[in-house]
Design a protein around this nucleic acid. Structure first.
Lengths: 363, 363
DNA sequence: TGGTTTTGTTAGAGCGCTCTATTGGTTAGA
DNA sequence: TCTAACCAATAGAGCGCTCTAACAAAACCA
């Protein structure tokens, strides 16, 4: 009844002003927390606003102020909980710095991702974070001309006007290989992530570490999925019939889980006969049922740094691009052990001696 | 150079109009695909727009038109891939009907969820979908006065002005119990979802089915997490030392996986000694490594129906609330089997009393 | 006391767009 | 030939807000 000339519809600043007996401009000042408002009027305005259920219209606000408090987030794959933790980090900073997050997803398809990005841009956000983008560098570059952009978990790029926050995939893969080598493995195969973001970097790290240890690298093309991991292993088993690897460095955790399934289907036990290392330390890996040895990226931290990079750019505190490379760490769980036939220097955890028969003739 | 009075900044409709030698209104018509524009001018405008890299400003548009093409989506937990599939369904409809999705998350905390909801509302969306909300009914009701709202995967509510799309959790839990009974189980314990959405409904279904079969129900308070499932089982094992159940109906897949881990830690084998049924058929359950028997909700379909409900309301095609209750189905995988010491009559898969829902899935 | 600051408040223009009239310019009908 | 009917195009108001400039009223200083 008191919604004045605006029954039913959402109350506007005008309505609040009328009810509080002040001007629209004063309401605006109160809403933005200006110090130059008398206490008396401030409380009157706040009360009127509360009574009407008024909430400022962000779009109108950003239109009028020519600024935005919106940070756009493009999540390349909502199904992958990996990104959820990055969002956690972004969200924490956004909350602290008074930005709003709007999320959008590209479903791992470049076309949809472009759509999602355009949709985000049409809100004229103050900045945009692309998590695991698969869209072309050219398009990212184009967008970067209009708004600060930070890439997270992205494949390497030559773009000069974007910030980047990645984990050091090369170091991570090296970590995995070093771990396996230290357990006594020397036939270590990498299932790579195909064209996925970070796949190339991890592959490079694997190759580098293998060379460093004087071992012969074998890379199998795969993908960031359960099914692809299983498929790659099945092919591996079919081809390299006699000469099986004793350890696998998988593209990521999903890939690793698929690989483990295929290994077990083939009667190979993990880790007794084959060790498997994942990548990402997703909640999947942590499930005690899987208990996957994996490489952990500081995801929340990555999100936090990404948001901070954006905020700095938005506030004009920095204009050169930054390229953060965070250090991953190895999380050793139960899918890695000493290889069969290669008893380690010291006392092992689980190294069944009777294993030799199996390893001798898997044929 | 030709950006006229607007160098550097994003071109506006005015810029396009100037360049094409027409009025701003005409550009507006072209942008909205009006048929009442001569072909000649249309191409001229489109060319000018292309040359300037013009993209309409959705905020300004929705401000001026007093309409919105934005659908807000509040996802209660981004880490749970369950919701990602609902978003897929929403997204499909949104794309088809020319709406934009903006997503936001509440991280399973009522306070954050309220924040997220308010943030969403401040964009004055045309409609809002709340996926697995934990915020209070009162607040939802308040929001529903301002914008059409659809609840998905929500706990039951008395709210009269919102649409609801749920799976029939009662039927789902019954499906699980019936399946276990048909395998010969009669000591079936339910690990419930505590205060989680749908937890009560599932518990009710479990109780109903147990009673129907003349069995004594046992409900253990738990939660929708891996850890909670494991904890509940550990407590169960500690207390009911002598008289263990032969089957568990878990609150959801995560809970089930935790339960399985705890069982295996205790030396109990699944499914040989204890059968476990999950709920949700998440990607987790499908991993061949877990191969969890579970209840599947048609999630994408739920998302689709939710979006359609919103669109109908937005278009004014309907004003009464709808309450959709979708039928779940059982996916039998490898975590359920006949109970020990109780060899079944024959080898059943289905259960006698022709229940409405089907038994689908693998294996 | 008069002038200068300071403080609190407001009018009014305008952000980029849509939308309702309204305007000329054709064409059709009689 | 005139009017009605249509068509393409446009002027101008206004969506809900911010922001600059201007303005009273109170406070300060000499």
């Amino acid at each position: 009844m008191d919604r004045a000339a605006n029954p039913g519809a959402r109350p506007t600043m005008e309505d609040v002003a009328r009810r509080a007996g002040v001007s629209r401009a004063l309401v605006s000042l109160v809403m933005r927390g200006s110090p130059k408002v008398s206490e008396q009027r401030r409380t009157a305005v706040l009360r009127a606003a509360r009574e009407l259920g008024y909430r400022p219209h962000v779009m109108a606000r950003s239109l009028a102020s020519r600024t935005s408090t919106v940070l756009g987030v493009m999540v390349s794959d909502l199904h992958n909980p990996f990104f959820a933790e990055i969002v956690d980090g972004l969200d924490a900073v956004a909350r602290a710095e008074d930005f709003e997050l709007i999320i959008n997803t590209g479903s791992r398809s470049p076309a949809r991702e472009r759509r999602a990005l355009n949709s985000l841009l049409s809100f004229r956000p103050a900045g945009v974070a692309l998590l695991g983008p698969v869209v072309s560098a050219a398009e990212i570059g184009l967008a970067a001309q209009q708004v600060p952009i930070v890439l997270v978990a992205a494949r390497p790029t030559r773009l000069s006007n974007v910030d980047i926050v990645n984990d050091d995939g090369e170091a991570g893969a090296e970590l995995a290989v070093d771990h396996l080598v230290s357990l006594g493995h020397n036939k270590i195969v990498h299932l790579d992530g195909g064209g996925g973001s970070q796949a190339g970097t991890r592959r490079r790290g694997y190759l580098k570490a293998m060379r460093r240890h004087g071992l012969e690298p074998v890379v199998l093309r795969s993908e960031y999925t359960d099914a692809a991991g299983a498929k790659a292993v099945r092919e591996l088993l079919a081809e390299h019939d006699g000469d099986l690897p004793t350890a696998l460095v998988a593209a990521n955790d999903y890939n690793a889980v698929g690989a483990i399934s295929a290994l077990e289907e083939a009667g190979l036990r993990v880790p007794e006969e084959v060790s498997v290392v994942g990548y990402d330390n997703t909640s999947l890996a942590a499930l005690r049922h899987l208990s996957l040895t994996t490489v952990d990226q500081p995801r929340t931290e990555m999100g936090r740094l990404a948001a901070e990079a954006l905020v700095q750019r938005i506030r004009g505190q920095r204009s050169e691009p930054v390229h953060q490379l965070l250090h991953p760490s190895l999380v050793v769980r139960s899918t890695t052990a000493h290889p069969p036939l290669h008893p380690p220097p010291q006392s092992p955890t689980r190294q069944p001696a009777g294993k030799s028969a199996t390893a001798g003739g898997t044929s």
